[in-house]
């Protein structure tokens, strides 16, 4: 049973390493990132993966080795501990963990802290409700909650090559605005109006996923985020405005 156990440990270790090594080739990796900032999150993930991967290989090798060499003659040496070893395997991991945490503080600050928000007006308001995504542009007067607000649903269009700021609003329960291709996720909590920001260099067509359980239809609360050049974005807004002027007045 000794060899079987060693084999099982090595098998699990190899499978775990393979599952990440082979992931890209099989499409099991993150979807392609288009966000300028998302690239830095990907780099941090790689850092995390390499550090934890190194620890993983080391620990599994030690585990397999200790289990493998068990069948020695005589009795075990009755060692109850060793202070120096304890210090080594407390302080070295502590340094690694603290270092890893500190290495990620900048990205977290730029991702979420209000001070890192680009100094631009809110591009659009995202309004989530069971089980649809609605999007509101401020219209020609550039102010929300006025008569010329432009509303659309399912597909959010934003400009490429400039910072985009979205305000997230929920009408009912908690939803979560998740765009895997942007490495962006933010819960949409009723009573709060969180903002998210990102920048995409070129055109892109991305899936929008609801990532917080919001009821029976949670699974189908899909949307899209389409990133287009500035000119196309302006044309899109103009088209929305025309549509609004031609048939929207009666509804208001």
């Amino acid at each position: 049973m000794r060899l079987v156990t060693v084999l099982l440990i090595l098998l699990l270790g190899a499978a775990a390493v393979w599952s990440f090594a082979a992931a890209r080739a099989h499409g099991w990796w993150f979807p392609e990132n288009v966000s300028v900032f998302g690239a830095r999150i990907d780099a941090l993930f790689d850092l995390n993966l390499w550090i934890t991967g190194g620890v993983f290989v080391l620990v599994f090798a030690l585990l397999a080795w200790t289990v493998a060499r068990g069948a020695l003659p005589g009795r075990a040496r009755p060692v109850h501990g060793d202070l120096r070893l304890e210090l080594v395997w407390t302080l070295v991991p502590a340094a690694i963990f603290v270092g890893l945490a500190v290495a990620q503080l900048d990205e977290w600050r730029e991702l979420k802290y209000a001070g890192a928000r680009p100094h631009v007006a809110v591009t659009a308001r995202v309004v989530a409700s069971q089980f649809d995504w609605h999007f509101v542009y401020p219209g020609p007067d550039r102010r929300f909650d006025t008569l010329d607000d432009l509303e659309t649903t399912y597909e959010l269009v934003v400009p490429a090559g400039e910072p985009v700021v979205l305000q997230l609003v929920s009408r009912d329960v908690i939803h979560s605005f998740f765009v895997p291709g942007l490495r962006l996720k933010q819960d949409v909590v009723p009573g709060m109006r969180p903002e998210v920001w990102f920048e995409v260099r070129g055109p892109a067509d991305l899936e929008l996923v609801c990532a917080e359980l919001c009821g029976w239809g949670h699974y189908k609360m899909a949307g899209r985020v389409r990133v287009v050049p500035r000119a196309a974005f302006d044309a899109h807004l103009a088209a929305l405005e025309r549509a609004f002027r031609s048939n929207g007045k009666d509804e208001r």
């Binding site: 993150f30 999150i41 995390n48 890893l100 945490a101 991702l111 490495r183």
Partner: peptide, 10 residues
Amino acid sequence: STPVDVPLHD
């Protein structure tokens, strides 16, 4: 790791 958690959360 907060930044990495963002795409992985939920």
